[in-house]
Design a protein around this nucleic acid. Structure first.
Lengths: 167, 167
DNA sequence: ACTTGATTGACAGGATGCTGTCAATTAGCC
DNA sequence: GGCTAATTGACAGCATCCTGTCAATCAAGT
């Protein structure tokens, strides 16, 4: 039982490219955000407060992307210390203050948005919108299938059937 | 100039799913390697030495995936300290010792290989080999296009042309 | 041989993220 | 009103990876 199926090989072949792409996206985010004086993580947290003030816990829940509440907390404190954001009183909670960008933070966010647009348009045009959409679809399906497998909800090979099909 | 193109939107929509998939793959690697007593990073470094003994610098170059030489160094030292691997003398270099797995390390690697096969086969079957192949192709093209853009080798939008087309 | 430059490992420092614990606060329930 | 559970922020500790610096070692050219 040491031979992988063709699909198994295909999935294994996908792992390294995903890691590589992940790193490239992070590098691009760094290139975009660094000239403005903030890191990708700061950008992410600060950006979440652009539309409306949010508590740290709100951001941690919304961002979701593997950022723990305490990580967001530290980042938020940093943003406040550096003048990108400020804590405001929360009518609904005495401890959970509302984080919102300062004028400088807001201006920087808008600037970064334009820089990001330029990058996304250029790279997106190179790959093609249609191909990108099916790419996203596959990425989601892989993640979902792996989650199901790890949760024990996906039996072994022989392509028996999906526990809860894609449709 | 704050409007993104359709392709730009499609690419932006791809970023979060890639991060999420990256996290899921790491989680799967953790689930696979942790019961055996090693972390994904240890697995990666140790696995590189399965076929032939390598120096730390060799591994850092080969692995490539964003693992710096010094990170591999520390991991390698850890693997030796924990009995998974051992340093052997290198006929070609007095300082750069050759890292190779111990019997225990080799046995663990083979065990992890089987566990990984089961995961890859199950998840791969769920997604489909054909779809996975085009997924990998797109992932590579995105990374390549972004690298080119960051290197200044990709002009802005209007889908003018590719500097060095995909075919 | 000698010099010059690249490689390599050791060491120190820093950034980021996670987990665990604790008290303050809030929300739900009786 | 009072009790219990969940949420939230503060604090401390830990793991991982990165960068920079330095001396030892190797490779190449003269």
């Amino acid at each position: 039982m040491t031979e992988r199926s063709a699909a198994g090989n295909a999935l294994t072949d996908a792992v390294l490219p995903v890691f590589e792409l992940n790193g490239e996206l992070l590098a691009a985010a760094r290139d975009i955000s660094e000239p403005a004086g903030l890191t990708p993580a700061w950008w992410q947290v600060l950006g979440a407060t652009l539309d409306e003030p949010l508590t740290v816990s709100d951001i941690a829940r919304r961002v979701g992307l593997g950022l723990a509440r305490q990580s967001v907390q530290r980042t938020a404190d940093l943003l406040v210390a550096k003048g990108w954001a400020a804590y405001g009183t929360n009518p609904h909670h005495r401890r959970a203050k509302l984080l919102s960008p300062t004028d400088a933070g807001r201006a920087t966010l808008l600037l970064l948005r334009d820089t990001q647009h330029a990058w996304a348009d250029a790279v997106g045009a190179e790959v093609g919108a249609e191909e990108l959409r099916s790419f996203v679809d596959t990425a989601r399906r892989i993640a979902e299938a792996s989650r199901a497998y790890r949760a024990g909800q996906l039996s072994r090979p022989v392509g028996t059937a999906a526990p809860s099909g894609p449709g």
